[in-house]
Amino acid sequence: MLAGTVAPPVRPVRSALSVLALLAALLGVGIPAAGPAHAAVPDRWGFAFLDNPTPPPAYVPDTTRQWGSWPSPATNPVRVDQLGTGSYVVHFPLIAGPGGIAHATAVGRTGSWCQVRGWATAGTGQDVTVSCHRPGGAPEDTRFTVLYTTSSGVPSPAGGSYGYLYSDASGAVLTQYNSAGAVNAVSHGGSGVWKAWLPGLGASTPVGNIEVTAVDPVQGARCKVADWAPAASGQTVVVNCYNAANALYDTRWTLSYSVKRAVHGPALPPKLFGYLWFNGTVPAGTNYNSTGPANTLSGSVPYTVNLPNVAVPSDTAQVTAFGSGPDYCGLAAPWARSSGTANLYPLCFNGSGSPIASRFFTAFTSAY
């Protein structure tokens, strides 16, 4: 339900007929080969929250907001090194391997945003490089959440569905996963505009959660969900990316889509997770809490998303803006925990970095 929410104009989700038109544009897109089958989904994953924007070398960030699939994460933590102003490398231990995707979300009220610059195997671990920027594009030391995950194979039915892709600027799919065993695809439109197609996932009405992150090793970039067209045959998502001057911009990006699954892909565990899409209203299928009760939304600058019963450390959150134009969203502050309830504080900004009421997706998960 909504309480005291200042709602921006609602842009309706496209009809099923529009979906068919969008799918026609995808014909002829090169399709990558599917990866080898594995038993686990995801195969490897980790998340963290950098609570100190100027960390000393080999800094261990907030231990209540980091976890991963490697042995003994409580005693073998994530570490972060700062490479320069607004530039960081996050070291996830013991999950080395190719593929996967990463997401990052800025945490603060100054209008800064964070993006991924890239990720790569480093010895036995996986390094994710993140850069953060103030309005106008200059690097800025900023707190952020970061997530890495990789999946393969078709899981046994466990409820829900999940898919992701990593696209280069041309629309070529660099890595992808689809829990239905289908193959995701991307088509490139005009500058800074793409259509992603995730077949076999979701439903004909809006269900689930979408997260998108820019991946650019050169300059500041932001990506968002510009539109979403659900269909029984799969999901079409329009992605727009912008440079620091708020112009549509060709860059790489990641996208993940989850239905009754945590943001990094698994069904159970974790047992404690949730998500919410605000599009002027909150469609029922996009308001999910794994423990049963509905999440609630209140406020606007920032919003408060209340998720009952799921706040058990360690945990993490991501936010992605929705709609046309260069506005973007992050978290105003780290999520709060109270009597098992998690309170997230999405905060959105216009292209100049001023706080505004806007639309967004947000996802939260515990490790358990």
Rank of each mutant, 00 (worst) to 15 (best):
A245Q: 15
A245D: 15
N246A: 15
N246F: 10
N246V: 13
N246L: 13
A247E: 01
A247Q: 10
L248W: 00
L248D: 01
L248Q: 11
L248G: 06
Y249A: 11
Y249I: 11
Y249R: 14
Y249K: 11
D250P: 13
D250M: 07
D250W: 06
D250S: 12
T251E: 07
T251W: 06
T251L: 06
T251C: 10
T251V: 14
R252Y: 08
R252S: 15
R252M: 10
R252H: 11
W253D: 01
T254V: 07
T254Q: 09
T254A: 09
T254I: 04
L255V: 02
S256E: 13
S256L: 14
S256H: 08
S256C: 09
S256M: 14
Y257V: 00
Y257I: 00
Y257R: 03
Y257D: 00
Y257W: 04
S258W: 01
S258D: 07
V259H: 06
V259L: 06
V259R: 05
V259W: 10
V259T: 08
V259C: 00
V259G: 03
K260P: 02
K260Y: 03
R261M: 07
R261W: 04
R261L: 01
R261N: 10
R261S: 09
R261E: 10
A262P: 00
A262K: 02
A262M: 04
A262S: 12
V263K: 02
V263Y: 07
V263I: 08
V263Q: 08
V263M: 03
V263E: 00
H264L: 03
H264F: 06
H264V: 02
H264P: 02
H264D: 09
H264E: 08
G265V: 01
G265Y: 04
P266K: 05
P266G: 05
A267H: 07
A267Q: 03
L268H: 11
L268G: 13
L268Y: 15
L268R: 12
P269L: 03
P269C: 07
P269A: 02
P269S: 08
P269K: 01
P270T: 08
K271W: 14
K271N: 13
K271S: 14
K271H: 13
K271I: 14
L272Y: 09
L272P: 05
L272R: 11
F273K: 10
F273T: 12
F273A: 12
G274E: 04
G274C: 13
G274M: 10
G274K: 14
Y275W: 05
Y275R: 06
Y275L: 05
L276T: 09
L276N: 12
W277M: 08
W277N: 03
W277P: 02
W277S: 05
